[in-house]
C-alpha cells in the first residue's frame, strides 16, 4: 500500500498548530528573502564580469526595472539596468515595468532550493509574468547565465534543458565573480 513518507507525516501533524503554520510561513519567507538578496548580488557580480551578459544587456533599454518575488505578500527584489550592468535597487516592489513572480511560497521554495529549474517551474505554470513577455524572455536568459556561473554542474545538468558547459576562460570569469560576490553580498545584506 502507498504511504506518505515519514517526513510528510511529521509535517502534516506539525501543521495542526497555528503557531507552527505561521512559523513555517515566516521561515520560508526569511529563506526566500535571503535567497533573493543573494541573487540580487549575483546579478550585480555576474553582469559586471561576464561577456555573455554584456551581449544580452546591450539589447536592453537603459533603466529597465524588473522585479523577482513571490505572491501575494513578498518577498520581492527590484533590479535595474544601469550602463552595462544590472544593479539591485532594493527589496520590495519599486515600480518595476516587469515582474516575474511565483504564485505561492511553496513553488518559490522549490526553485530557490534548486529542487526544480526555472524552465520546469514555468512549464508547470508556477510563476506569472506581469509585463512584456519578450522582455521577460530577455531577463530569463540573463538569469540562466547567472545560474550557469553560480551553481555546481550537477544541478545545472538536472535543471536545464540543455546543460550549459563552461570553457576554461569562463572558469576564470567564474572565479572573478565569486570574489566580487563577497562585497556585493556585504552591500546587499548590511
Amino acid at each position: 500500500m502507498l504511504e506518505l513518507t515519514r517526513f510528510e507525516k511529521t509535517m502534516i501533524s506539525a501543521r495542526k498548530f497555528p503557531v507552527w503554520r505561521r512559523m513555517e510561513t515566516k521561515a520560508k519567507r526569511v529563506y526566500l528573502a535571503m535567497a533573493l538578496r543573494t541573487f540580487g548580488a549575483a546579478f550585480e557580480a555576474v553582469t559586471a564580469s561576464s561577456k555573455e551578459c554584456e551581449n544580452e544587456l546591450s539589447q536592453w533599454e537603459e533603466g529597465r526595472r524588473f522585479a523577482l518575488g513571490v505572491e501575494p505578500s513578498g518577498p520581492y527584489i527590484t533590479l535595474e539596468k544601469k550602463g552595462r550592468k544590472i544593479r539591485m535597487i532594493g527589496t520590495g516592489l519599486k515600480e518595476p515595468v516587469l515582474s516575474i513572480v511565483f504564485k505561492n511560497l511553496d513553488s518559490a521554495m522549490m526553485v530557490y532550493t534548486t529542487y526544480m529549474g526555472v524552465v520546469q517551474a514555468t512549464a508547470e505554470n508556477r510563476a506569472v509574468i506581469r509585463g512584456d513577455n519578450g522582455k521577460a524572455m530577455e531577463v530569463i536568459r540573463v538569469l540562466e547565465i547567472i545560474m550557469t556561473y553560480l551553481l555546481p554542474g550537477f544541478i545545472l545538468r538536472k535543471n536545464f534543458r540543455t546543460a550549459p558547459t563552461l570553457s576554461a576562460p569562463q572558469y576564470l570569469v567564474m572565479l572573478r565573480i565569486y570574489v566580487s560576490l563577497v562585497p556585493s553580498l556585504v552591500k546587499t545584506f548590511f
Binding site: 524552465v119 514555468t122 512549464a123 509574468i129 513577455n133 519578450g134 521577460a136 524572455m137 534543458r161
Partner: peptide
C-alpha cells in the same frame, strides 16, 4: 524569434 515567449515551452533550448 529568440525573444518570443513560446520558446519557454519548447522541449529543447
Amino acid at each position: 524569434a529568440v525573444n518570443d515567449g513560446c520558446l519557454m515551452y519548447n522541449p529543447l533550448e
